[in-house]
Simulated assay, not measured.
Amino acid sequence: MENHRTSLLKVKPTIHWQLIFDKYDVDSDGRISLPELKNMLKSESYAKDIPNHTVRQIMRKADRDANGYLDFPEFLKMIEQEEEGGVMKNALNRYVKATVVPRKRFTADEFDGSGDYEDEYTCNPPAVLMILISFLVVIAFLWDVIEEGETSVKGPAASLFIFNPYKRYEAWRYLTYMFVHVGVFHLVVNLFVQILLGVPLEMVHGWWRVLLVYLAGVVAGSLGTSISDPGVYLAGASGGVYAIIAAHLATICLNWAEMEFALLQLIVFLALTVVDVGTAVYTRYVKGEHNQIGYAAHLGGALAGLLVGINVLRNLQVRPWEKKLWWASIVIYTTLMLAAIIWNVAVPSYFPPSH
């Protein structure tokens, strides 16, 4: 009895999809040409037979024998694969839609030219960039803890990677300080924010765009610190984390009319930034506790994330004023970065002596 019931459960969906397939197979020859399928899917009379994300998968992958036609076995195979996407993919899609996905889907004709916008995350390729960076950060942290027996800037990873103002000639330190964290709380907060915010950005905009934003924030953080606080050591991924936060702000501002909860997200991100930077400034300059928190790295990373994010992140609808903003952000970012680099190279007397 149980086996019979299981068989019925399998047969009924197949019959359902056979009926859908027959509806599209207008000449009843058992196959549908892909151009015909594409035209029919755009027709209102065929709307909502197949979920949008499944339609895109069918058009992209279903013609497995490359003969230009879609037959029922190919159609059914694609449907089954999509239904097997599982709870995890659905949860990821809901999370992304709540953060960086707009209210409506844009077609290739409406989009800005950087590719068709996906309102469903397909897990291909997987969003692992921020997770990989976080893993490397944890490895560096554990290396120091194992060697020193405690969190310390004297560990092997910290000694090699930290931004040391007395070793500015070791140029890699302007970037690698992102792997050094002093204290578990410092580490956990940075990892939490960069995964929570970086992963949805990567899922929508692609790993290489997010990587550019993140690294731009890290380098801007160290350059900004070297000029505003020339004697300060710098550790942590806050420059990159703040770049990710600011990149969200850039996405919200550029796609304000299309975004879900745009105002709420803007308020939350601005509040986080103001509270964190304000606390660091108050602690150092008002209370007089010289803990040398690198707030300049936070501000530098945020500024870089905003300027670079405007340039590299996907813009759902390009308006005339946004093109001017795009050029302005390029000029401002390039000017600031060149000025900081030239200052570091050309004015050695401003900085602590190298040793």
Results as ranks from 00 to 15, higher is better:
residue 4 H to Y: 14
residue 5 R to Y: 12
residue 6 T to K: 15
residue 8 L to S: 08
residue 9 L to V: 09
residue 12 K to H: 12
residue 12 K to R: 11
residue 16 H to V: 13
residue 19 L to D: 04
residue 20 I to N: 00
residue 22 D to S: 01
residue 22 D to P: 00
residue 26 V to A: 08
residue 27 D to R: 11
residue 28 S to M: 12
residue 29 D to S: 09
residue 31 R to E: 10
residue 38 K to A: 06
residue 43 S to E: 09
residue 45 S to V: 08
residue 51 P to Y: 01
residue 56 R to D: 09
residue 57 Q to L: 12
residue 57 Q to I: 14
residue 64 R to E: 15
residue 74 E to N: 07
residue 75 F to L: 02
residue 76 L to E: 08
residue 77 K to V: 07
residue 78 M to H: 02
residue 80 E to K: 15
residue 81 Q to R: 07
residue 83 E to A: 06
residue 86 G to E: 01
residue 92 L to R: 09
residue 93 N to Q: 14
residue 95 Y to R: 10
residue 95 Y to M: 14
residue 96 V to H: 00
residue 103 R to F: 13
residue 105 R to G: 09
residue 108 A to N: 11
residue 112 D to I: 02
residue 118 E to W: 13
residue 121 Y to A: 01
residue 125 P to Y: 08
residue 125 P to W: 07
residue 126 P to D: 05
residue 129 L to R: 00
residue 129 L to T: 05
residue 133 I to P: 00
residue 137 V to P: 00
residue 137 V to D: 02
residue 155 G to F: 00
residue 157 A to Q: 01
residue 159 S to L: 05
residue 176 T to H: 08
residue 180 V to E: 01
residue 186 H to V: 08
residue 188 V to Q: 12
residue 192 F to R: 08
residue 194 Q to A: 03
residue 195 I to C: 13
residue 195 I to N: 06
residue 203 M to W: 14
residue 212 L to I: 09
residue 213 V to W: 03
residue 216 A to Y: 04
residue 218 V to D: 03
residue 219 V to Q: 03
residue 223 L to T: 02
residue 224 G to A: 04
residue 225 T to Q: 06
residue 226 S to F: 03
residue 234 L to H: 00
residue 240 G to P: 01
residue 246 A to V: 03
residue 249 L to G: 04
residue 263 L to G: 08
residue 264 L to S: 12
residue 268 V to Q: 04
residue 273 T to C: 15
residue 285 Y to P: 13
residue 285 Y to W: 10
residue 289 E to G: 11
residue 291 N to F: 15
residue 295 Y to E: 03
residue 296 A to T: 06
residue 301 G to H: 14
residue 307 L to K: 03
residue 314 R to K: 14
residue 320 P to H: 09
residue 327 W to T: 15
residue 331 V to I: 12
residue 333 Y to A: 05
residue 335 T to K: 07
residue 339 A to W: 10
residue 341 I to Y: 04
residue 343 W to D: 05
residue 345 V to Q: 06
residue 345 V to W: 05
residue 346 A to W: 06
residue 351 F to G: 04
residue 352 P to F: 04
residue 354 S to D: 08
residue 354 S to N: 13
